[in-house]
Computed example of a mutant assay.
Amino acid sequence: MNRLGPVLTLAAGAATAAVLGVLSTAPSAAPDAPGGPSEVALATSQAAPAPAEISKATGTPGAARTAETTGTAVPVPARADYAGRVRGDGGLIAVSVRGGRAVGYFCDGRSEAWLKGRVTGGTVALTGPGGASVTARLDGGKATGTLELGSREWRFTAPAVKKPSGLYRATAVVRGATVRAGWIYLPDGSRVGLTLVDGEPVDVAVPEPGENATVRGEQVGPEDVDEFIGEF
C-alpha cells in the first residue's frame, strides 16, 4: 500500500474525495507496518530478550539469580571444625580446616577412614586409602557433601562445632605395639571411635572429651587437629 500524503491535489476531483472518505472510516495498519498490529507485536517479542536474558547479559540482578549462578566466592574460614552424622549409615564424620589444608575422619565404631586434602573456592576435596573420598561445600556454618567408601556412597551435613566437640587422634607405642585411635565428639554428647593395635581393631572405650583412653593398661592421650594435621 502506498502511503497517502497529507495534501490532496485539486485534479483528483470529487470522486477521489468520496473514495478517501470511505477509506478513512475503515481500520488500517500503521504506516510502514505491512503485517499489521499482531505481526508488530510478534516481531517485538522476538527481538526483545527475556528478563532473565537481560540479567545474564548485563549483570543486572534478577529474581532467579543466586550466588551459584553469579559465581560469587564463598568465604571460607582459615580455621574451622565440622562434625555430624552420615545419613543412612549411622556413623559420624568430622572435617577440620586449617588454612587451605583439610583433614577428615569417618567412623561407625566398626570401620574408619582417614582422609586428607585441600580447600578451594569453598569446596573441600579429601581422599584416603581404599578409594575413600569426601567432597563437601563449606557454607552457611556447615559442611554439606558426599562420603564415598569403595562402591558405597552417603550424604552428610556436618555443622561447625567448637571444642571439645570435633575430631581427635591418639598415637602411641604400648608394650612394643603401635596404637592409633580416632575419636569424634558431637555437641549433643554423641561420640564414636576406633582403636587399632598394630592395625587390628581392639575393644577400647571412647573416653570422655579431653580424657585419656586405656589401652593394654596404659594411658593414651588425645591429640588435637593442630597437633597432627601436618602429618597428613
Rank of each mutant, 00 (worst) to 15 (best):
T178A: 14
S28W: 09
R65T: 15
W154S: 14
D81F: 00
Q219F: 06
G210A: 01
V95F: 05
G176M: 02
T178E: 10
E153V: 09
K142P: 01
V7Q: 12
G140K: 06
T127Q: 10
G88M: 03
R3V: 08
D32V: 04
R216N: 12
A52L: 06
G100P: 05
A17L: 15
T25M: 05
A205W: 07
P77D: 03
L186C: 04
D198S: 10
T135M: 03
G90E: 04
V215G: 11
G230V: 08
K162R: 10
V179E: 05
D89T: 02
Y168F: 07
L186F: 03
E218T: 12
G150Q: 10
G193C: 08
E227K: 13
T171V: 11
R216V: 00
G150Y: 11
V95D: 05
A47F: 12
N212W: 08
R87L: 09
A78V: 01
P187T: 12
P209A: 04
P209E: 02
S55Q: 11
V40D: 00
G145Q: 11
D188Y: 14
A143P: 05
R137H: 04
V103C: 10
V204E: 06
L149Y: 09
A50K: 09
Q46H: 14
A177P: 00
S96W: 01
P209Q: 03
S38Q: 13
V74K: 08
S55D: 05
A33I: 03
K162D: 04
A63H: 13
G84R: 10
S190P: 00
R180K: 13
D198F: 04
E112I: 08
E39W: 06
E231F: 15
G199D: 02
V119E: 09
A47I: 06
A205E: 14
A125W: 04
S133I: 06
L149M: 14
P164K: 01
T157E: 15
L10W: 07
V7P: 00
R216D: 11
S133N: 11
I54C: 15
S111E: 12
R98S: 11
E223W: 05
L126G: 08
V97S: 03
G140Y: 06
A30F: 12
L23M: 14
G90L: 06
L147G: 01
G150E: 08
G109N: 11
T144L: 07
A41H: 10
F232W: 15
T44W: 13
T157C: 13
D198W: 05
A64H: 08
G117E: 11
V179Y: 07
G189S: 12
A170K: 02
L20F: 11
D203A: 14
E231M: 14
V103K: 08
Y185A: 03
T44M: 12
T178V: 13
V225P: 15
S133V: 06
R155D: 15
D32L: 14
G59V: 07
D198V: 02
P222R: 00
T144F: 03
L8V: 11
V173G: 07
E208M: 05
W183A: 02
V74I: 14
E53T: 14
V86G: 05
S28A: 15
V76I: 08
G35H: 06
P6V: 06
S151C: 07
A29R: 09
L115V: 02
T144H: 04
A18S: 06
G62Y: 12
T25P: 00
V192E: 11
R191A: 13
R152A: 15
T58A: 05
A30M: 14
G59D: 10
T146K: 15
G88F: 00
L138A: 04
A132N: 12
